[in-house]
Design a protein around this nucleic acid. Structure first.
Length: 598
RNA sequence: GGAACUGUGGUGUAGUGGUCUAACAUGUCGGCCUGUCACGCCGAAGAUCGCGGGUUCGACUCCCGUCAGUUCCGCCA
């Protein structure tokens, strides 16, 4: 039987009690972490959000209370009144923040009983994630999860504080939106009132925030939920949160410097970490050439080195042919990796194959010279030139990929991270920020046989590249920028197009007919005719930021109720069937392909 | 759409063709215990080995399929 808390008032949190509190009569409310029953003496560790404290029951509390204390089990919810007393030297628990005191219980109420939980509530549990997600309310009782959500709150709060103090207004934008082509798949919401029509959940508040600039709000921000119906990853959920920002009358420099200040403020305020500024900047071309990635991890070196000029005349036909066909030959120097066994190199080859590399050539740099299965194809001079150009020394392992530029970048870009991980070259405490700027405006979609916007179709081209918009779209750079933290894309944004003419040209480049453009984005084009100010902005992925700050590998650990990889909720079992009446009202008929019929 | 890994008492694991009538730890339940803090000691209960099919004299074990989870590729303006 559970008891009422009527007449009892919580006076302290369990985790806050210290030596100074000794002598106080306190009333605590929390969960039983563990009970240690010594027969004539019962210890109960009581837990709440603030931490643990040991409560002692001895027979002085009365037979009834003592018996009740013996009946409690893990995760029972208790209210305890008692006196805070110091522990004797030999019974101090140095592992507990409250370890110098304990509470001698006088009164106990069992506010609620609890079934034995499927897993013990403590940090570092190795429990199947499905079990954790099904019982998320228990998983979230664990101190590390509570800490993650507290950090998340603090970060969001610090962001609001900063944005407010810099004159930004937090404005909500609709969740029920117009479905837009381009970009990710939309989550659709049927409209009952508009028969046969659908809303879409926003992939981001992009167009609304631009509208707010036309509205003269000048500085906008929102901690906004975004939805994308795409496949999941450790750092991708179908719904995620971003700090969304837009400002008028600014250029790229204004935005980058303000955003650096924002990040400095957030890291100082929430983690007392001093983030150095200005952040290192790389152009997209530099990032791709040197690190093989548009989100390079700069916590370690290992650059990609082009050796085409050295090997193009060698006897190694694989390299020669790739170069002749417009491909690249690049390598990385894995420091101190001469020790790698044949199997380890095979593993790296398989790793590179994930990203399309058809092979991985390797050379071991020893005191006696270069050793590998391919050295016979090169002259001694060529080998020495390679070693010199790559800055290799005895003990290093050189790894090469020859392929199309995209494959070379992708495979070596990931390989350098893999080597750094294996060799422990990464300081886990480091927060390394950088900007990648001057992204291409377009990329060519082989699938659609047309140019598509790399960022989004509202991104402004760089003024000096405008002339190539129709003659050579691949050459046009955008006023777009990404902020990278430890090799993770933390956020991105751009200066937007604010002229109707250029926006129309942009749609034309993207193969929209004027009618298409008017149908899909007419409201934007119309708005641009009424005095749209120059504007730009950026969005930070809040989930990823908290993930990196808390040192987790998945954003699921910093989201209270995340989805599984199949985009379902293990706790509520959403998504689920709906009643026929609901479908009928919406005029929706379900026709499943044969293989998924239940 | 594709690849890899995983699935065995509540939880985490062991078991790789034959005393497996499924082991160990932890948890759970009962008993004892006044200084523990991963309390200790004694005892007990608890698993159709994810599901379906196949191979075999015999399958937790091998094969095929399927479901679920995780990681990755594609995808994610």
């Amino acid at each position: 039987m559970s008891e009422s808390m009527q007449g009892m008032k919580r006076s302290h949190s369990c985790g806050v009690l210290r030596k100074e509190d000794c002598g106080k009569i306190v009333t605590l409310m929390g969960w039983v972490q563990r009970r240690r029953d010594h027969g004539g003496l019962i210890f109960v560790d009581l837990r709440d959000r603030a931490g643990l404290v040991q409560v002692v029951f001895n027979p002085d509390c009365g037979a009834e209370t003592f018996e009740k204390a013996g009946s409690v089990r893990n995760e029972y919810v208790l209210a305890v009144t008692g006196e805070v007393v110091p522990r004797s030297d030999e019974t101090v628990n140095p592992n507990l923040a409250t370890g110098e005191v304990e509470v001698v219980a006088k009164e106990l109420r069992i506010l609620n009983k609890a079934k034995t939980p499927p897993f013990y509530i403590e940090d570092g549990v190795e429990v199947d994630e499905m079990v954790r997600l099904r019982y998320r309310y228990l998983d979230l009782r664990r101190p590390e999860m509570q800490k993650n959500l507290m950090l998340r709150h603090k970060v969001a709060f610090a962001m609001r504080e900063f944005m407010d103090s810099h004159g930004f207004l937090e404005i909500e934008t609709p969740i029920l939106c117009k479905s837009s082509p381009e970009g990710a798949r939309d989550y659709l919401v049927p409209s009952r009132v508009h028969e046969g029509e659908f809303f879409a959940l926003p992939q981001s508040p992009q167009l609304f925030k631009q509208m707010l600039m036309v509205s003269g709000m000048e500085k906008y921000f929102q901690i906004a939920r975004c939805f994308r119906d795409e496949d999941l990853r450790a750092d991708r959920q179908p719904e995620f949160t971003q700090l969304d920002i837009e400002m008028s009358f600014v250029d790229r420099e204004d935005i980058l410097s303000l955003m650096e200040k924002l990040l400095v403020h957030v890291f100082k305020k929430t983690m007392d970490i001093d983030v150095p500024t200005p952040f290192r900047r790389l152009t997209y071309a530099e990032a791709m050439n040197t690190y093989g990635s548009d989100k390079p991890d700069l916590r370690f070196a290992i650059p990609l080195v082009d050796i085409a000029d050295i090997v193009k005349d060698s006897g190694f036909q694989v390299f020669v042919n790739v170069i002749a066909n417009g491909g690249q030959v690049k390598g990385i120097c894995a420091p101190g990796c001469l020790k790698y066994s044949r199997k380890e190199i095979d593993d790296l080859t398989k790793f590179a194959a994930i990203y399309g590399a058809k092979g991985l050539a390797w050379m071991q740099v020893t005191e006696e010279g270069v050793k590998s299965s391919v050295t016979k194809f090169f002259t001694e001079e060529q080998l020495q030139a390679i070693v010199a150009k790559m800055g290799a020394k005895a003990g290093d392992l050189l790894l090469f990929v020859a392929d199309k530029p995209a494959v070379v970048a992708d495979s070596l870009g990931h390989l350098r991270c893999e080597i750094a991980k294996r060799e422990g070259l990464i300081d886990p405490k480091e927060f390394n920020f950088s900007w990648v700027i001057e992204f291409p405006l377009f990329e060519y979609s082989e699938e659609e046989k047309r140019w598509v916007a790399m960022h989004h179709p509202f991104t402004s081209p760089m003024d000096e590249d405008l002339e190539y918009l129709f003659t050579d779209p691949g050459k046009v750079r955008a006023k777009a920028y990404d902020v990278i933290l430890n090799g993770v894309e933390l956020g991105g944004g751009s200066i937007r197009i604010h002229s109707r003419e250029i926006q129309s040209q942009m749609f034309k480049c993207l193969n929209f007919t004027p009618e298409d453009a008017q149908d899909k984005f007419g409201y934007l084009l119309n708005a641009f005719e009424y005095g749209a100010p120059p504007h730009g902005g950026l969005a930070f992925g809040l989930d990823r930021m908290i993930m990196l700050m808390s040192g987790r590998d998945s954003i699921r650990d910093v989201i209270a109720f995340p989805k599984t990889q199949s985009a379902a909720c293990a706790m509520t079992d959403a998504p689920s069937d709906v009643a026929d009446e609901q479908l009928k009202e919406l005029h929706i008929k379900i026709e499943l392909p044969e293989k998924v019929k239940k």
